[in-house]
């Protein structure tokens, strides 16, 4: 293991100051909880010349409720999200996703902003400097071959943040600040399908708030995560669903995935299921949608086909749970 690279540490007191530092210092990186960045720095994956620590910035850790919806400061920690009574009650997917991250020691440091901006992961990338050098590096960092798909020219590193799918199904947007001004974009626009550069954030932009619009009280949401162990692990596949069901009929359905692609994806085509009775056929159609759009590659030590299949199974199961539907004794088919 390498020792921590050297860097200059800045501790701005405001977002504006942080944005100005990012603009002034090429290669500078924001440091929030540090649970993603610091392990990568310990492995020599990141060697930023300057770290801009948001720890001294006030007022970015607030959870605000208003008629228009929920506003979450970027510095809100995952443990805050997991334990906030109103979020647990009204936006269960967010609380469940936050609670599923790593362990309590991570969650009390990690922030929602950091989790949304989590780097993509790959078993050929999240390794030590010696390991990556021995393996001749990779497309994502320092090399010219993707070891996951050596014939291609595309990095397949997978986005593994748990919060993004939960916020996607709730229609969240994010507020971004730069020294030249602020903008609000739909969360889905924060991402692009590129394992190397999956964030559309400009280098001098800071994600400052997450906005979740007020929704019908009938909307229920949840998050389910496939992993090998009951804690610590990143998702092999993570599924969030938001559902309105009336008398066994789907009135609204949103499904989002993480861990399977280089970006979190809001499933397309779910509107075709709206208006349908929740039954084996509907669940089977949902499973097919998931299997078609999830495109896990060999970026983890667990087989990619499993991750696709389990994503579908979790989506089917979660929709049943949220809609109060008991699947028949003959289980929902997964294939």
């Amino acid at each position: 293991m390498e020792r921590m690279p050297q860097f200059d540490l800045r501790r701005p007191a405001s977002i504006a100051e942080a944005a100005a530092l990012l603009a002034a210092e090429p290669g500078a990186r924001l440091l929030a909880g540090g649970t993603d960045l610091l392990p990568k720095m310990r492995r020599g994956i990141e060697r930023p010349p300057v770290l801009v620590d948001l720890g001294a910035v006030r007022d970015i850790s607030r959870i605000d409720y208003a008629d228009a919806g929920l506003a979450l400061g970027a510095g809100v920690t995952l443990s805050q999200l997991a334990m906030d009574g109103r979020i647990v009650h009204h936006h269960r997917a967010i609380a469940e996703a936050a609670r599923s991250v790593a362990g309590p020691g991570h969650r009390s440091a990690a922030t929602i902003g950091g989790n949304l901006c989590l780097d993509t992961r790959c078993v050929f990338y999240n390794q030590s400097e010696w390991w990556r050098a021995t393996n001749h590096y990779c497309l994502k960092l320092g090399g010219d071959v993707c070891h996951v798909a050596p014939q291609g020219s595309h990095c397949h590193a997978a986005f593994c943040g748990d919060l993004a799918p939960a916020l996607l199904v709730l229609g969240a947007s994010v507020e971004l600040c730069a020294s030249r001004g602020a903008r609000v974009i739909p969360l889905s626009d924060l991402y692009r399908d590129d394992g190397v550069a999956h964030l559309t954030l400009e280098p001098d932009e800071v994600l400052v708030r997450v906005l979740v619009p007020a929704r019908s009280p009938a909307l229920v949401s949840g998050y389910r995560k496939a992993r090998a162990r009951g804690a610590i692990d990143f998702p092999l596949a993570g599924v969030a669903c938001a559902v309105v069901a009336r008398n066994g009929v789907l009135a609204e359905l949103k499904v989002a995935l993480t861990g399977t692609n280089s970006r979190p994806i809001l499933l397309t085509g779910t509107e075709a299921l709206v208006g349908r009775v929740i039954d084996e056929a509907t669940l089977s159609a949902l499973g097919k949608l998931v299997q078609k759009q999830a495109s896990p590659m060999r970026t983890t030590v667990t087989q990619s086909n499993y991750r696709r299949q389990v994503a579908a199974a979790l989506a089917q199961r979660l929709v049943c749970e949220l809609a109060g539907y008991e699947p028949s004794a003959a289980r929902a088919s997964m294939s």
Binding site: L9, R11, L31, G34, T35, L38, P39, R42, R43, L51, D53, G55, S79, A102, G103, P104, G105, H106, S108, A109, I232
Partner: peptide, 25 residues
């Protein structure tokens, strides 16, 4: 870094991992 919990300490009463926390922070 951040995988086993052996370095867990309390910061302001919260459990935190000292191996992925900067002292200066």
């Amino acid at each position: 870094g951040g995988e086993c919990g052996a370095c867990t300490v309390l910061i302001d009463g919260q459990p935190r991992l000292a191996c992925i926390t900067l002292a200066a922070a």
